[in-house]
Design a protein around this nucleic acid. Structure first.
Lengths: 154, 154
DNA sequence: CATCATGTAACATTTAACGTTGCATGATGC
DNA sequence: GCATCATGCAACGTTAAATGTTACATGATG
């Protein structure tokens, strides 16, 4: 299994919600990406706290986008899902008394910090609106829509 | 547990070996970093194949450095330990038919690719000799040596 | 008030890294 | 030659984090 797909998953969901234009239930969204409604609610909880999405109970309830897609970046979403660990590699011990370990960790940490900064900067420059536009371009050439019917966005 | 500490671990071991200047057994090296001799042999197997280290059996056997420390970079070592996965994040599915997923994965993959390239480039610019020099500098100021006696390198 | 949908805690499953055991092979020293 | 040391390696056990699942409470709608 891929290590952590929260960011990828939640972006997928957000674009689907954006296409729908009306409340979509956790069950429908979960079905669209082959997972469980509860997993989905967990994922979206962080986004709700930040006001990126809204959830409503009862008949006709579900999830809706509650933000300007051009004002939210991948970095915002990354933070909203709890800033999951970026790297699958790391040091053996965090507070090593061994000088060899210190030298090694220092070199590795420097490199990882640089890469992390680059990645987050790049995330910060991509808005949800840009992703959505990218999707619509793909739509223009092909037609499949992942088994998920966006509703009135025909 | 930290995700993958092969690179960190093997670098630690290499510097210790470099300090020793004579064969060191898996058991000694494993003791120095609080792990198991078998784990260590697994780690070093890839380095042996590439000729970075040599192993000898029998009395007085063990591991020795078999390369010029200034000619081997962190990137070489990274490759020698099997190029472990760099990122802890990834896409839900690798071959998505969903156009939304394609748009999302495309954006994320671009960012990850850039970060990976930066990281590996940086690894490629750090030699084992540089790490060793860093270690010796630290030695000059303090004195602890991680419970591992390098032998004649007193 | 029946039904729908979310909120959430608790538990189960899965996967990859890591650890451990057991035994084979080869080298050294007597 | 033989006891001992050390690696080589396969097979299995352990563990932690992500994800999936169940169960039940809460609130909204018709």
């Amino acid at each position: 299994m891929m290590r952590d797909s929260k960011l990828s998953g939640v972006l997928h969901i957000l674009l689907h919600m954006a296409e729908a234009g009306r409340p979509v239930t956790s069950e429908t969204l979960a079905g669209a990406m082959g997972t469980n409604p509860v997993v989905l609610r967990r994922l979206l909880a962080g986004l709700r706290e930040r006001g990126f999405v809204r959830s409503e109970k009862g008949h006709g309830g579900g999830w809706t986008i509650a933000c300007d897609l051009s004002a939210v970046t991948l970095r915002d979403v990354y933070e909203a899902v709890g800033e999951p660990t970026i790297f699958a590699m790391g040091n053996r011990s965090e507070a090593p008394g061994c000088l060899v370990e210190q030298a090694v960790n220092g070199a590795l940490d420097d490199a990882f910090d640089e890469a992390r900064t680059l990645l987050l900067d790049r995330f910060g420059r991509v808005t949800l609106a840009a992703l959505s536009a990218d999707f619509r371009e793909r739509m223009a050439s092909r037609k499949s829509r992942c088994g998920f019917d966006a509703g009135d966005a025909a």
